[in-house]
Amino acid sequence: MARTSTHMRHAAITVLAWGIALWMFFPILWMVLTGFKSEPDAISTPPHFFFSPTISSYQDVFARENYWHFATNSVVISAMATVVALLVSVPAAYAMAFLPGPRTRMTLLWMLSTRMLPSVGVLVPIYLLARATGLLDSRTGLIVIYMLTNLPITVWMLYTFFREVPVAILEAGRMDGATRWQEVTQVLMPLALPGIASTGLLSLILCWNETFWSLNLTSSIAAPLTTFIASFSSPEGLFFAKLSAASTLAVAPIMVFGWVSQKQLVRGLTFGAVK
């Protein structure tokens, strides 16, 4: 009896999990499907699940905009912002994790609190600053902004990972004659590498998906893929198929990337929670 009820419960959980997963995945699936529809099919009600697929939307998208220009911008900006963020946050997290002062905790919370401020709240000052420094519509401008907005998250994550490293191992390194630099590069970094990797991955994804600043601070030269999608959005939901095709093109790289690295990501995001 007990055995059957356990089986039933497992089955129920499996069905529920699949249901939730499909429910969350459905918009993406729908977007991909719509990209292969003709424009009339795309907006028909009731919606068509079966249709004759066409790649005309993709052809139109490629004809109208230079996809590779936007894609290159996305890759360069996300990668650079992530690299710089790690360069800044590894030493910061090291100091906070291993040399904490009486105000470390407050500093960490304050950093996190900056993420709670809506971006639009600082739009005007940031825009004016970017204009004054000539960083409007430049990759450098976006790299700086992305790096700064992600710093609280990268510092927090690395701080959590570093805290898991036993202090005694670093002290052993110090006793063995390691300088601070050698202690970090030869003892701490190899130990925390999985954590640093997941932090980098998360930062990449956040940068790739960032829309607000890219729309407001770039127009053409430095515009990443999020701007590319936005350029296909039109009022009254016209050209829905083309918008879907453009969106698919924009999210495909990061989805493939996330798929490949999901093991690392899951480990990173649940680190410390499950032991």
Binding site: A168, I169, E171, M175, A178
Partner: peptide, 17 residues
């Protein structure tokens, strides 16, 4: 520490994993 000419064995061993 390293210049004092001492070597230490830690409670947790603290080996480099």
């Amino acid at each position: 520490p390293a210049r004092r000419g001492l070597a230490m064995v830690f409670q947790s061993y603290a080996l480099y994993p």
